[in-house]
């Protein structure tokens, strides 16, 4: 299915949902108490479940997390991202609280989004590196300049597996960031079932020059 077909089908689905919801609204007026009307066995349950599930939960992305917002939380490629959501003022100190969501990922109803998974769950002291944002104001302006984030792709041959453009320090767990619904769409792989990532993808840091090969004589 190409992109436009997908969009069309989404709109169709939306239209169907729209129509159905009118039916649903009309139902109570005509149906007797506790008797499902107009649904097959279990049909209402399925529809209710559908109706209560946000679109993002079905589509596997909320449309808000993309490479742009991904870098927006960082100061330079590879810096620890800020916490983009509210945390308790005490910031708990119960490290399990962060890991409860960010350890395995999944859909978070409260924030209506998929939770990104940490590539380094062995580090329990999350707030050592990750802090929230309480204000947008700066104390004093800054002349900070960053380098561009690494380009995607970079295959050496047409269609060959692209190299890993970032350092693997603290980010060695490919599965955490590149698969699943919490992954940023732009860097999600479509062959997540293949486990041995580094069989085909090798480190070739976008930030560091390639080492020239010289023979020992």
């Amino acid at each position: 299915m190409n992109r436009s077909e997908r969009n069309t089908s989404r709109i169709k689905l939306g239209f169907a949902a729209f129509c159905l919801s009118w039916v649903l609204l009309a139902l109570p007026a005509v149906a007797a108490d506790n008797i499902p009307y107009g649904f097959d066995s279990g049909g209402e349950k399925i529809f209710t479940r559908y109706n209560e599930t946000p679109f993002s939960a079905m589509s596997g992305t909320d449309g808000r997390r993309n490479l742009n917002s991904f870098y927006e939380l960082r100061q330079y490629p590879g810096s620890p991202p800020r916490i983009p959501h509210k945390v308790f003022p005490s910031f708990s100190g119960e490290q399990a609280d962060c890991i409860a969501c960010h350890g395995r990922g999944g859909y978070d109803v409260e924030q209506d989004t998929y939770v990104p998974v940490t590539p380094h769950p062995e580090n329990e002291l999350c707030y050592q590196c990750h802090v929230p944002k309480l204000t947008d104001e700066l104390f004093v302006g800054t002349n900070w300049l960053s380098i561009p984030p690494p380009k995607l792709g970079n295959s050496q041959l047409g269609g060959s597996p692209p190299p890993i453009p970032h350092s693997l320090q603290l980010r060695g767990d490919c599965i955490a960031c590149h698969t699943g619904s919490g992954a940023v769409a732009g860097i999600r792989v479509d062959h997540g079932s293949r486990g041995n990532c580094r069989q085909c993808h090798v480190e070739f840091l976008a930030t560091e020059p390639a080492l020239e090969f010289t023979r020992n004589k």
Binding site: L67, N68, E72, P149, P150, K151, L152, A185, G186
Partner: peptide
């Protein structure tokens, strides 16, 4: 993202 792979739209001031 499919049109401009690797281009970030973040508000970074770049060198």
């Amino acid at each position: 993202t499919s049109l401009f792979p690797g281009i970030s739209f973040a508000s970074w001031k770049q060198l």
